[in-house]
Design a protein around this nucleic acid. Structure first.
Length: 171
DNA sequence: AGTTATAGACGTG
DNA sequence: CACGTCTATAACT
């Protein structure tokens, strides 16, 4: 119960990769997922998967600022967003490791595993990535299999490729 | 050489 | 206990 009334402001926007839902807690991004359509119900459901007891408020005007900064590939590098991550210690470590990957670059799951001190926990790394609630900001799409294969992607292989292509060509 | 099969390794629900 | 964005190795074509 009453865990606590986390207030989440969310909004739905168009992104280069389809409709996306963004969730904010004060000024921190706590959620970012992609959808096929502009469905607020689906957006809310995504957020609730991670923040069941949150108090959700729709405010596109506010979230738009963030969206613009996030997808502003025009020149300046992505700003170091302050993210509110909910997860286990292991997951946090993985996510932090992922965020050190430069734009346009890719890394293998093995490399990430090694970076966090568990060279053999590649599968676990994969799980952690799949469990992240903040797509894109946590560059899980920049992680490929060792031989350069795409591997898989929670939100679809196609979207993953699109992101990589986008980042590579935009540089 | 490229492709599929198998087994091993690790954290989470 | 099964599963997840894996990887290395062996067996085949």
């Amino acid at each position: 119960m009453a865990v606590q009334n986390i207030e989440i402001t969310y909004g739905i926007h168009r992104s280069p990769f389809g409709w996306c839902t963004i969730g904010l807690v004060k000024n921190d991004v706590c959620h970012l997922s992609f959808m096929k359509t502009q469905s607020s119900s689906e957006a809310v459901r995504h957020i609730r998967e991670v923040w069941p007891y949150a108090d959700l408020t729709r405010d596109n005007a506010r979230t738009e600022t963030f969206i613009r900064k996030i997808f502003s590939t025009s020149g300046k590098k992505m700003a170091p967003f302050h993210l509110l991550m909910k997860g286990t210690d292991f997951q946090i470590k993985v996510w932090e490791a992922l965020m050190t990957i430069p734009k346009g670059e890719t890394k293998s799951y093995a490399a990430v595993a090694k970076a966090i001190g568990s060279p053999k926990a590649v599968r676990a790394v994969g799980s952690a990535c799949g469990a992240n609630a903040i797509a894109y900001l946590i560059p899980c799409h920049r992680v490929l299999t060792s031989n350069g294969g795409i591997g898989g992607y929670h939100w679809g292989i196609a979207r993953k490729k699109a992101m990589l292509t986008e980042e590579k060509t935009a540089r």
